[in-house]
Amino acid sequence: MIRFEHVTKRYADGTTAVDDLSFEVAKGELITLVGPSGCGKTTTMKMVNRLIEPTDGRILLDGEDIADADPVELRRRIGYVIQQVGLFPHKTILDNTATVPHLLGRPRKAARARAAELLDLVGLDPSVYGDRYPDQLSGGQRQRVGVARALAADPPVLLMDEPFGAVDPVVREHLQNEFLRLQSTLHKTVLFVTHDIEEAVRLGDRIAVYGAGRIEQLDTPATVLGAPATPYTAEFVGADRGLKRLAVTPVEAADLDEPPVVRLDDPVSRAADALSAADAPWAVVLDTDGSPYGWVAADALTGPAADRTAGVRDLARPMTAAVPLGTPLRQALSTLLQHDAGWLAVLDGDRYRGVLTPAALHGALRRATTADAADLPRDEVALDTVPRT
């Protein structure tokens, strides 16, 4: 969709902002450009919509050299979101969002109808926010309007220059979640500039790590974190890249422990026999629908006070912590900590698949890192462990 061929940007004072850059962005792909200030990432992005003209090389958009396009028409076909949003203060939110469709010749009524659809898509009810002005919105709401406005003409390409950098961390995370939801539906081709490696890891299908005017590594977040290509990349992503890796490593079925399973309506005798056969200290308890209810300890089933004619329901302890299969390990760890739990139930849809423990979570991270370094499927990696004494 976007192709850079030996692109260089050199200024009159001799400064080279971008040096011989060649890479491609596939249709529907989101690439995050990450690096320190002055490394050339914003220059790269602005050359796509010709806010900055390259000195050498060429940029192709869907096979066409953008140098042959009228700059104004080109920009109207490319969505552009910046940190400060740039909304017109004298226009309502609905009219701000309708600006580009109107410029492209849509009737005012149709442009406003499209704007209302997009405001709703980014979580702003047009009946509530449409008639407001930018200074009547919070920073996070203005950023949502900026995204809606960039999408208003249904552009195939979206350029985003640190769009969430001006809001507090809580709002920023919420905006990131909303944007990921939108992207999973719209599948735009996106160049996303950020200086935050965690944001780059979280959002990007691939990450371009910039050095001085050039890309040091362009790969998936998992590979950049697990196998940095250069010492510069390793230093930039940080010594704690293993922790960052939690955000891009999903929970897989092979990561799960499978303790004994009993049913809420089972008699104590049957549950005790199951735990004894497995030599297990506890069991997961499922309700009558097969959904996780909680757990029961072996001691409660076999102790002197245990009534073997009673039901598991009388002894089971509720445990509501659960995550879907495919959840990032970071989110799973957060859920463990939130519930102060020793394990999480993992679900595939409504079906119980197993439990994730802290030890299993650590093993999943180790396997993922080793798999990337060795270019192996994750389920083919066996781990050496230190035996317990």
Rank of each mutant, 00 (worst) to 15 (best):
A148Y: 06
V190F: 03
D314L: 08
Q183F: 11
V285A: 00
Q338E: 05
A371H: 00
D350R: 15
L344E: 00
E29M: 11
R10E: 15
V167M: 07
R76Q: 06
D19M: 12
V122D: 08
G354R: 03
R106K: 09
P221L: 03
D289P: 10
A271V: 04
L264Y: 15
L356D: 00
A12L: 11
A359P: 02
A69I: 04
T43D: 13
R214Q: 14
A371M: 05
K109I: 14
L218M: 10
R366V: 14
A272R: 00
S334K: 09
D273K: 03
T335D: 07
A239I: 14
L376Q: 14
A208L: 01
C39N: 08
F23Y: 05
R245S: 09
Q83W: 01
L104I: 09
T55C: 10
A364G: 05
T327A: 08
L180E: 06
L264V: 11
V171T: 15
A364W: 09
G14M: 07
A110L: 13
P163M: 02
D19W: 13
D314Y: 00
E198G: 13
M160F: 02
A153H: 11
D205C: 10
A98T: 02
L30S: 01
V346A: 05
P107F: 11
R378P: 09
G342L: 01
L180N: 05
